[in-house]
């Protein structure tokens, strides 16, 4: 039983990352019918921006210019990095996707791949191939609850992720912009005719997705403190799987599918030899898709309308 709960905790943390990144894919896909394949790399950029901001603030604090407790540095790091990374997202949309909005879908998809490569190699050129260690902003504390080991980091990661997801949900459900986004996801030919500014909404979607990816990047850096320029590729693919599994444009779907993916990966490794982890995990997902080709919350007709 202890073994099961330990794996459950592990899966919750791992699933949070998938869920946060899947949200970015899902929103862009839902609203613009676009696979933003650069999203995994925006996650990487977010992690590096977080690294830069955290190191900067920590350096200022150690110089005595400002006095801040570590948790506040972390909060500031997350907020500032989310803000900065959202501009990366806007830039990607403005330079990469907007000129191609009327182009065939495949062109937009490869644009994403190319932007991804540009971000990776740009980072490589800027910072070199050296790995960087994400600064440990919070002192790790491990709690033993009846044989299950939980760290303060894990609680924080899952907590912050859930908070962000809830905030996004509220934004999309309750605000005027959220309504515009939902309307565009419903029909992006007619809705702009009603006076909804398509460019603003598109840029905003990218900004929000990128900000979430940045938050994921920082939390990732806290949990797995070794950053490298290629960290977003495979991770991005897997989060993309979660986004599609959740259903087109569904925030709830992407969140649930992200956690589900984390659970499947961890529990497959728990039961079967770990060598077969991804093999079995992704076979299961393929099977799920066979029975639910539109994902958990996807609507068949909308896909038929656009593709």
């Amino acid at each position: 039983m202890v073994f099961f709960f330990q794996n459950l905790i592990n899966a919750l943390q791992w699933g949070s990352f998938y869920a946060l990144i899947a949200l970015g894919y899902s929103m862009v896909y839902g609203i613009l019918m676009l696979f933003n394949f650069a999203h995994g790399d925006i996650f990487m950029v977010g992690a590096y921006i977080g690294f830069g901001v955290a190191t900067g603030i920590a350096a200022l604090a150690s110089l005595g210019a400002i006095v801040l407790p570590n948790w506040l540095i972390l909060v500031l790091t997350i907020i500032i990095s989310m803000f900065l990374t959202s501009f990366v997202g806007i830039l990607v949309e403005r330079l990469g996707y907007r000129p191609l909005r009327e182009a065939p879908r495949a062109s937009a998809a490869i644009t994403g791949l190319m932007i991804g490569i540009i971000l990776e190699t740009g980072n490589l050129a800027l910072l070199g191939a050296r790995r960087v260690r994400f600064p440990s902003l919070i002192e790790s504390a491990t709690y033993n609850i009846g044989g299950v080991y939980v760290t303060n980091k894990k609680i924080m990661i899952v907590g912050v992720s859930l908070m962000l997801m809830l905030a996004l949900h509220q934004f999309v459900r309750r605000s005027k912009y959220g309504m515009a986004m939902r309307a565009m996801a419903f029909d992006y030919v007619v809705v702009p005719l009603m006076g909804v500014p398509i460019n603003t909404i598109a840029a905003m979607t990218f900004a929000i997705g990128s900000a979430l990816a940045a938050a994921a990047g920082i939390l990732f850096g806290i949990a797995y403190p070794v950053l490298d320029p290629y960290m977003g590729i495979v991770f991005g693919w897997k989060a993309f799987v979660a986004a599609i599994l959740g259903g087109r444009g569904s925030i709830l779907g992407a969140t649930l599918a992200g956690f589900l993916l984390g659970f499947i990966e961890i529990f497959v490794a728990m039961i079967f030899p770990s060598t077969l982890r991804d093999f079995i995990a992704y076979s299961i997902i393929l099977l799920i898709l066979t029975f639910r080709p539109h994902g958990f919350f996807g609507e068949p007709y909308s896909a038929r309308l656009r593709l």
């Binding site: 330990q6 791992w14 797995y224 070794v226 495979v234 529990f267 728990m270 030899p273």
Partner: peptide, 14 residues
């Protein structure tokens, strides 16, 4: 075991 580029080893370590 795991495969190259994996970063989460929690299930193996558990």
């Amino acid at each position: 075991s795991f495969t190259t580029k994996d970063v989460d080893f929690s299930s193996q370590l558990t």
